[in-house]
Amino acid sequence: MNVFRLTGDLSHLAAIIILLLKIWKSRSCAGISGKSQILFAIVFTTRYLDLLTSFISIYNTSMKVIYIGCAYATVYLIYMKFRATYDGNHDSFRVEFLVVPVGGLAVLVNHDFSFLEILWTFSIYLESVAILPQLFMISKTGEAETITTHYLFCLGLYRALYLLNWIWRFYFESFFDMIAIVAGVVQTVLYCDFFYLYITKVLKGKKLSLPA
């Protein structure tokens, strides 16, 4: 464990909690892509099946349980409890165009052709593009609530911090995992234009609105 991975995990946890609280407190999931949240639930489920097979640490197990629990709670709030506030018209990204290629790639490019390892690889590839429906929805509506931008900032920051963690591990532990690094770079790059808007607008107290 190093400071980048720890702050990365905490940033990820913050993002998940911010989103859950936003929906729960405002009793609304306006502006939130339910499709992205379903993809994240799939990412956690396929990645954390090792909860059933191996114990690494209290921290590892508790974080995985929290991530999975919050992900399904968020999906439940969006599609069941507050479904009247779900903006399905703008949440129109064709996720099958993500899941199918990612599934194929996971079978072709992985470290070990075993069930759990292919699922892990699938979850790594899927996570790198899982935010696309959400970013697509914001581009369609042309704006995002400020709390949603904080959620996205923490979510984007977490994998950027993981990139620093992998640089640290390469330098000090001469360890690197090409699959996780490439997917992490793709994932972080997808947030770049959002990061620019967040830093130049939201941090200056303006609302995040895209040129329509």
Partner: peptide, 10 residues
């Protein structure tokens, strides 16, 4: 087993 050294990462 631990051929992939980042099994401890979330």
């Amino acid at each position: 087993e631990g051929e992939r050294g980042n099994k401890d990462e979330l």
